[in-house]
Design a protein around this nucleic acid. Structure first.
Length: 271
DNA sequence: ATTGTGGCCTGCCCGC
DNA sequence: TGCGGGCAGGCCACAA
């Protein structure tokens, strides 16, 4: 499930392997994969004959800039892989096939005479857009300042985790990383987002930064310390308490009821 | 406005 | 051995 770490790996791959190259053709066999009301001809018209000049990322959105001013936006859903000239951006993804079946190539750029940049996405949950509205996304989770994190959470009655997953508020955190960050910060996902004390906000910011760095280093959002324990019967790797499972913010959520503190404890009560 | 829900899509895994 | 039902989750439309 590509979250920030995977998409950053894709960005680095695109940057190292595709910049400066000429787009010679576009293959978009799946109309569903084109978002924002565009058709294959639109993408061709915007990109063929251009060179790729920058590979940027905002949250889970990969942005490829061209020298003619257009920007290609690539989304990977949970099962999309970026492959450039046969090199995949990440080794494996959780919750999807490890195979690289050509029929799952949903979008392809031909680069130069023989190069290929393509999205291989078994479940078609990703998509491609032209000149996407980057400011529809909040600040990137990588490098978000304490003030930006505070602003993303302030005044909200929504569950803390739901707010962390809201890409318009903070871009890049997905389900697994949210559980990992909250576990590390010792905060219950069901806490109202706006209920955090200043000390808790500092703790959350610190652990967000550390977790993003760690998962970037390890190379995947599924490589956190909590992830292996997000299974029936799983226990907290910190204190051994049986983990709790519930749907929070519409997603399967696992947390430790012992050390991830809830609203009751904030008010000085023990559950 | 904010918050919650369901559906998209399809491969994979479990239990029968 | 094959089959069917859950399940996974990023994102979006829609409802309250």
């Amino acid at each position: 499930m590509p979250e920030l770490p995977e998409v950053e790996a894709y960005r680095r791959l695109a940057e190292s392997a595709s910049l400066g190259r000429l787009v010679t053709a576009v293959e978009a066999p799946d109309a569903w994969f084109l978002k924002g009301g565009i058709v294959a001809r639109d993408v061709e018209g915007a990109l063929v004959g251009c060179r790729l000049v920058a590979a940027r990322r905002r949250g889970k959105l990969l942005l490829l800039d061209t020298d003619h001013g257009h920007t290609l936006g690539l989304r990977f859903g949970m099962s999309g892989r970026l492959v450039v000239d046969g090199t995949a951006g990440v080794d494996e993804l959780l919750y999807t096939s490890r195979r690289d079946d050509p029929v799952w190539d949903r979008f392809t750029l031909r680069l130069g005479a023989s190069g290929v940049l393509r999205i291989n996405d078994p479940r078609r949950l990703g998509g491609v857009s032209l000149d996407p509205d980057e400011d529809a996304l909040g600040p990137d989770a990588l490098g978000a300042t304490p003030a930006q994190l505070r602003a993303a959470l302030a005044g909200s009655a929504a569950p803390l985790k739901a707010r962390l997953l809201n890409q318009a508020r903070l871009a890049g955190v997905g389900n697994l990383m949210a559980d990992e960050v909250l576990w590390r910060a010792g905060l219950a996902p069901v806490r109202p987002a706006g209920s955090l004390t200043a000390a808790e906000l500092r703790r959350l910011h610190l652990q967000l930064r550390r977790t993003v760095d760690l998962l970037l280093e390890r190379g995947g959002s599924h490589l956190g310390d909590l992830t292996p324990h997000r299974v029936p019967g799983g226990t907290c790797p910190r204190d051994g308490t049986p983990l709790r499972r519930a749907t929070v913010g519409g997603r399967t959520t696992w947390w430790c009821p012992e050390h991830q503190t809830g609203a009751a404890e904030v008010r000085g009560q023990r559950p």
